[in-house]
């Protein structure tokens, strides 16, 4: 995430210090979130890092710079690693599980890279969107939140063993 902050600051056309400050603030928040441990701080740190990159992209005026692929992947990997390390506080993984999880994480990172590359390519082909697409996007967000809420509510089920 520090890399994201520095990369964002270096590539920004203006407000580089603000981008860097936002990125470094996110890194510090992540460090605190992992050390405390504090889940909202981790979420805020990840959001802060994304905001830092978004600000950098805005200063350049482009729709979505190519570096977004790396930034999105890095943010995702940072989030996965953060929650993985939080799990290790209660019960550390066995060595074989550790290796498997590392391989799984690498696979997810590659998946994220491919996904964002594909999405970026698609966005580049059809940039701009429109009111209809934005309305569909907003509805999708609301739907996603509602779906997750319902699933979490249905949580405490106790099937027979």
């Amino acid at each position: 995430m520090a890399g994201v902050a520095v990369y964002g600051a270096v590539t920004a056309d203006r407000l580089a210090w603000l981008v860097l400050a936002l990125g470094i603030g996110a890194v510090l928040l992540l460090v605190y979130g992992l050390a405390a441990p504090n889940l909202p701080a981790i979420v805020a740190a990840l959001a802060g890092s994304a905001a830092s990159w978004s600000l950098s992209a805005w200063t350049r005026g482009s729709g979505a710079p190519g570096g977004t692929i790396l930034v999105a992947t890095a943010t995702f990997v940072a989030a996965e690693l953060s929650y993985w390390s939080l799990e290790q506080i209660s019960v550390p993984d066995e060595p074989e599980l550790l290796a498997r999880r590392a391989a799984g994480l690498a696979l997810r990172a590659v998946g994220a890279l491919a996904l964002v590359s594909f999405a970026l390519a698609a966005l580049g082909l059809n940039a701009g969107g429109g009111v209809l697409i934005e309305a569909v996007g907003a509805a999708a967000v609301v739907g996603l939140v509602a779906l997750v809420y319902l699933l979490a509510q249905a949580g405490h089920e106790q099937p027979g063993r």
């Binding site: 994304a50 992209a57 977004t68 999105a72 992947t73 997810r108 964002v116 970026l120 966005l123 940039a127």
Partner: peptide, 9 residues
Amino acid sequence: PELALIAAP
């Protein structure tokens, strides 16, 4: 759009 891309994974 980059924010949506970061959220996608």
